[in-house]
Design a protein around this nucleic acid. Structure first.
Length: 420
RNA sequence: GGAGGGGUGACCGAGUGGACGAUGGUGACGGUCUUGAAAACCGUUUUAGCUUCGCGCUAACGCGGGUUCGAAUCCCGCCCCCUCCGCCA
C-alpha cells in the first residue's frame, strides 16, 4: 500500500509513477476524492464527539440531570452515528482502492511496457554443447520413470504430476541442499510456516484483494492456500513493533505453493514447468529502509549462488516498470538454461518491496529505544523454485543413453551419482 | 463438536456505568547517591488519525454491533486462549 499522505500531497508524482506501470489516472483521482470526503466526515464527527465528551463530563458532575442537555446530546449522538455510517462506507471504498494500487517503482528501474523491455544485467556459464540432440524433461522423465504425468492427471487433473523414485529424491535433495546453503552460508533462519492462512495475511503480502482469482480458497473455514512462502513469511511480524537491534531478519522457508493459474490455461502445459502445486524455497528479509537497496543485491547473489553450485548457466534480468510485480519497487529475475526445451526458465524473482507490504501488514521497528516506530522494508526472492531447477538439471545433465548425472553439489544428498 | 473459565498497555495484574488512556508491580530509559556497579530513592515511559501544528481534539481495554447524555465496565454475535469430554495423524 502506498502512503495516502503521499497521494494527498503529491498526486502528480504518484500518477507519473503509476503511468510507468501502465496504470490509469482514474483510481488516483478517485482516491483523492474519497479521502477528501472522508476527512470532512471525520472532522465533523470528531468535533461532535468533543462536544459530547465535554457535556457528558458536566452532566456527571451535576446532581440534577438537566433534561434539555440530555435531549441535545441524544441528537448529537444520532448525528454522529449518521456520519459514522456514511463515512464507514467511504472508508471501505477508499481502503479497497488503496489496496489495489501497485507499488511505486524505484527511480532507476528501466521504463517499459512488458518483458520485451527487460534488461539483462549479467550472466554466468554457457549453455552446454551436446553431441546428440538433448531431449526435453517430459520425455526423459517418463522414460526414467521419475515423472508420472498420467497418474498425476488421474489423481488430480490437468497440471498435476507425480514424482517417483529418484525423481522424488532429486527434489528432496535439492530442497535440503538449498536450505542448508542459505542457513549455513548465507545466514538465514529456517522457518516452516502454515500453508493455509487467513485473509488478513493475504492482504498483508499484497495477494488480496486484487489477485483472488489466482488463489485456492477453502470457503467453509475461510482458509487461503499460500501461492508462495512469501505470504506467511511477510505475516510472521504482522502488527509488530520490532525492538532495537532485531533487524535485519533473514528467513528461508520451503513450502508447497498453490496457484490456480486460471488466466494461463493452455500455456506451458507440457512438462512440469507450470503446475497448480509446486515446491519452492523462499528467502525473505526484513531490513531497515536505508539498507534495502544493497540487501536486494545480496539477496539476488544468494539465489545465484545456488545456480552456480549446481552448475546451471543463468542470466540475471532486471524487470522494467511494466513487467514488475504488484508489490515490488525493483526486481531481478534469474533465468536458467534448459537444454531440452531450449529456453531460459525463470527460477527466481528477487524483489525489494520497500515499505509497501510493511504498511499493509503494519510491520514496524524502533531504531533505538527512544525513537518512534518506523516501517521496515521487506524483500523476497525464490531460492529457488523446484520444478524448474529439476527441468534444468534433467535436461542439462542428460547423457546420450538417457541417464542423468547428479550435480556434484547434490552428492551428499543423493544415494546415487547417476539417475538411470 | 459439547461443557466451564478467561482475553486490559512491552510483561504481570487491578478496575462491574461518569473525573479511567486506565491503580499497582516488573522491565526499559534518565537522574540522585557511588571510585565503579548493585541496592535504595526521584522522575520518564502506548499507538495512530485529524489538525486552527496548540502535546489542541479524536480514537483504541480480543473483534464487530447494541443500550446510554456517557461503556474497559451492561446486552448480543463472532474470534482466540486455558481446563474437562468427544473425535483424530
Amino acid at each position: 500500500m502506498i502512503d495516502i499522505k503521499l497521494i494527498r500531497d503529491n498526486p502528480e508524482a504518484v500518477f507519473q509513477a503509476m503511468e510507468k506501470r501502465g496504470e490509469g489516472r482514474e483510481s488516483i483521482d478517485e482516491i483523492i476524492g474519497l479521502d477528501n470526503t472522508f476527512r470532512r466526515f471525520l472532522q465533523e464527527a470528531e468535533a461532535l464527539r468533543a462536544r459530547r465528551n465535554e457535556v457528558s463530563k458536566q452532566i456527571s458532575l451535576m446532581k440534577e440531570k438537566p433534561a434539555d442537555l440530555i435531549a441535545e446530546m441524544r441528537q448529537v449522538g444520532e448525528r454522529i452515528s449518521q456520519i459514522e455510517a456514511e463515512s464507514s462506507e467511504i472508508t471501505a471504498r477508499l481502503e479497497d482502492k488503496l489496496l489495489r494500487l501497485p507499488n511505486l517503482p524505484a527511480a532507476d528501474v528501466p521504463v517499459g511496457k512488458d518483458s520485451q523491455d527487460n534488461i539483462e544485467v549479467r550472466s554466468w556459464g554457457k549453455p552446454k554443447e551436446f553431441t546428440f540432440k538433448p531431449l526435453p524433461h517430459w520425455e526423459l522423465g517418463e522414460k526414467l520413470g521419475i515423472i508420472d504425468f498420467q497418474r498425476g492427471v488421474k489423481l488430480s487433473g490437468t497440471r498435476f504430476y507425480v514424482l517417483r523414485g529418484q525423481g522424488a529424491q532429486l527434489q528432496r535433495a535439492l530442497i535440503n541442499f538449498m536450505l542448508d546453503l542459505h542457513v549455513n552460508a548465507h545466514g538465514y533462519t529456517e522457518i516452516f510456516p502454515p500453508f493455509m492462512v487467513k485473509k488478513e495475511s493475504m492482504v498483508g503480502s499484497g495477494n488480496l484483494p486484487k489477485f483472488a482469482d489466482n488463489l485456492y480458497h477453502d470457503i467453509e473455514e475461510d482458509y487461503w492456500f499460500v501461492p508462495t512462502a512469501e505470504v506467511p513469511l511477510t505475516n510472521l511480524h504482522r502488527d509488530e513493533i520490532l525492538t532495537p537491534g532485531t533487524l535485519p531478519l533473514y528467513y528461508v522457508a520451503h513450502t508447497s505453493c498453490f496457484r490456480r493459474e486460471k488466466m494461463a490455461a493452455g500455456k506451458d502445459s507440457r512438462g512440469i514447468k507450470r503446475g497448480h502445486q509446486f515446491e519452492k524455497v523462499e528467502m525473505y528479509k526484513f531490513v531497515e529502509p536505508e539498507t534495502s537497496v544493497s540487501e536486494l543485491d545480496k539477496l539476488t547473489r544468494d539465489a545465484e549462488d545456488i545456480c552456480q553450485k549446481l552448475g546451471l548457466p543463468y542470466h540475471v534480468i532486471q524487470l522494467c516498470t511494466g513487467d514488475m510485480g504488484f508489490a515490488a519497487v525493483k526486481t531481478f529475475d534469474i533465468e536458467i538454461w534448459a537444454a531440452g526445451c531450449r529456453e531460459w526458465l525463470e527460477v527466481s524473482s528477487c524483489s525489494n518491496c520497500g515499505d509497501f507490504q510493511a504498511r499493509r501488514a503494519n510491520i514496524r521497528y524502533r531504531p533505538d529505544s527512544e525513537s518512534k516506530p518506523r516501517l521496515v522494508h521487506t524483500l523476497n526472492g525464490s531460492g529457488l523454485a523446484l520444478p524448474r531447477i529439476m527441468i534444468s538439471i534433467i535436461e542439462n545433465y542428460q547423457q546420450q543413453d538417457g541417464s542423468i548425472l547428479v550435480p556434484e553439489a547434490l552428492h551428499p544428498y543423493m544415494n546415487t551419482r547417476v539417475i538411470k
